[in-house]
Write a protein that binds this DNA or RNA. Structure first.
Lengths: 235, 235
DNA sequence: GAGCGTACTTGTACAATGTAAGGCTGTCAA
DNA sequence: TTGACAGCCTTACATTGTACAAGTACGCTC
C-alpha cells in the first residue's frame, strides 16, 4: 500500500537501464560529455552513484548503451523515408538518411565522441547499416563496392565528420590564433589571399561563419555519393 | 665539478619542453594514450610529476605540444616530395603527401585521438595545410574550391580516417559480436550474403583481415581526389 | 668566498573520478 | 515466520590532474 502511494507521489520511480540511458543522454545534452559522470548521472536520477552499477556493468557499458540510444534515435528519424527503388534514386535515399542522421548529431553534439570511441557495433547500428546495404543493392552495386562505400563514408554515414581544430562553441578563440597567424605571415603567404577570397565569397551570410558546417558536410557527402555512383555505373 | 660529472654520468639531463614532448610521444607509443599520465610521463623522465608543470602549463598544453610534434614528423616525412607543377600532377602531389601522413599515423596509432581533440591549429598544421593550398593553386583550383576540398578531406588530410567500431588491436572481440549477429539474423539478411561475398573476394590475403585498412583508405582518398579534380575542371 | 636572486625541481595535499566490497531493506515464496 | 533475492546504499580506495609552498642549485655581484 505504502508502496503504491510512493509509486505515485514519489518521483523516485524504480531505476532501470532505459531510464539510466535516457538520463545519461539528457545530462550530456546539457553539460557536455564531461558532465556525464557516474555521480552526476546518479544525482540527475536522484539516486546514489553505486546504484547505477546494478543496471549497467560500468561506464564503458553505459556509453555503449548511450551510443545505441542515439542510433535508435536516428532509426526513428528515418523510419518514414522512402527506400531506394533502383539506380535512379539510390543516391537520394542515402542522402536523405545521412542528413537525417546529421540532424540527430546536431541535437547531441557530444555523440560523435561517444560513437567514435565504441569498439563494437550494437543492434541499432547493424540495422542502420543494413538499410544502407539495401539501398546499395537496390542501386545495383556489388557487395564489394558497397563494402568500399561503407568504409569511404565512414563516420559521415552516421551523420558527422569530426571537424579538426574546431573551437568549442562558446569559447571565443579561433581555430588559429591571430598571433600565430601574424607571426607566420611570411611562411604562409597563400593563407592571406585565401582567407580574404573565401571570406568575401559570401559576405552577407556571416551568421554561419565562413565555414558553413551544413554546406561543407553536404559538399563532401555529394562528392562521395557522386564518385560512388560513377564507380557503380562503371561496374 | 660534481655537477659536471653528474651531467655526464647521470642520465638526468635538464628537463625542457622538447624532451618532455618527445618522451610523451614515446610513452603513448608503447602504452597507448591511457598510459600518458603526468605521473607516468614524469617517471619515464626520471622526474617528479610536478616538475613537468614548469615547462608545460597543464595536460591540455602537453597534448597541444604532442600534436605539434606529430605534425612536424609529417612535415619531415614529406619534406623531399616534389610539389605540384600544374593540373597534371596536383592529385599525385596531394596523394603522396597524405599517404606519407598516414605512415606517421601508423607509427602513432593514438595520434588521431589527440589531433581530433585539439581545438586550435599549431604552426606545424598551418605549414602543412599551406602546402596543400600551394598544390590546389598549382592545380588551378579557386580558393573557394580549395576551401571545400580541405573540409571534405577533413582528417584524411592528416592521414587518418577514424574507423568506426574498430576493435582495439590485441583484443579478440569482433566489431560485431557473433551472438548479436546470429540473434538478428532475420532482421539483417543482406549482411549474411554481404559477409560471404566480401570475404570470398580476396581469400589468400587474410592477414590484413577482410577490411584492409590501407586499400580502404586509398579508395576513399582517390574517390575524393577524383571528385575534386572533376569539379576543378568543371570550374 | 659570502650573499643573493633566478631558474628549476620537489613534497605534500586535495578534489574529482570510477568502482570494489559488503550492508541494508523491502517483497515474495515456501 | 523465515529465508532468499532484487534493488539500492554506505564506505572506502586507487588513480588522475594540479594548487601551493618549500626546497635546491647555479651564476652574479660585492
Amino acid at each position: 500500500m505504502t508502496a503504491e502511494i510512493s509509486q505515485e507521489t514519489n518521483p523516485r520511480r524504480p531505476l532501470n537501464r532505459e531510464r539510466i540511458l535516457a538520463a545519461a543522454v539528457a545530462v550530456a545534452d546539457d553539460g557536455g560529455l564531461d558532465a556525464l559522470t557516474m555521480r552526476g548521472l546518479a544525482e540527475a536520477l536522484d539516486v546514489e552513484a553505486m546504484s547505477l552499477y546494478y543496471h549497467v556493468a560500468n561506464k564503458e557499458a553505459l556509453l555503449d548503451g548511450v551510443a545505441e540510444v542515439v542510433v535508435e534515435e536516428i532509426l526513428d528519424e528515418i523510419a518514414d523515408l522512402p527506400g531506394a527503388t533502383g539506380a535512379d534514386d539510390w543516391k537520394e535515399a542515402m542522402r536523405s538518411r545521412i542528413l537525417s542522421a546529421r540532424q540527430v548529431m546536431l541535437r547531441h553534439k557530444w555523440a560523435p565522441w561517444v560513437l567514435e570511441s565504441r569498439t563494437t557495433m550494437n543492434g541499432a547500428v547493424l540495422r542502420y547499416y543494413h538499410g544502407f546495404l539495401e539501398i546499395f543493392r537496390a542501386g545495383g552495386m556489388s557487395y564489394d563496392l558497397a563494402h568500399h562505400a561503407m568504409h569511404a563514408l565512414g563516420s559521415r554515414a552516421l551523420g558527422f565528420s569530426q571537424e579538426l581544430f574546431d573551437p568549442s562553441p562558446g569559447s571565443d578563440d579561433e581555430a588559429v590564433s591571430e598571433e600565430l597567424f601574424a607571426q607566420m605571415a611570411t611562411e604562409i603567404p597563400l593563407f592571406l589571399e585565401f582567407m580574404e577570397a573565401v571570406a568575401h565569397d559570401d559576405p552577407e551570410d556571416q551568421t554561419l561563419g565562413w565555414c558553413d558546417d551544413k554546406s561543407e558536410f553536404e559538399f563532401a557527402l555529394d562528392l562521395m555519393l557522386d564518385g560512388l555512383d560513377r564507380l557503380r555505373i562503371a561496374g
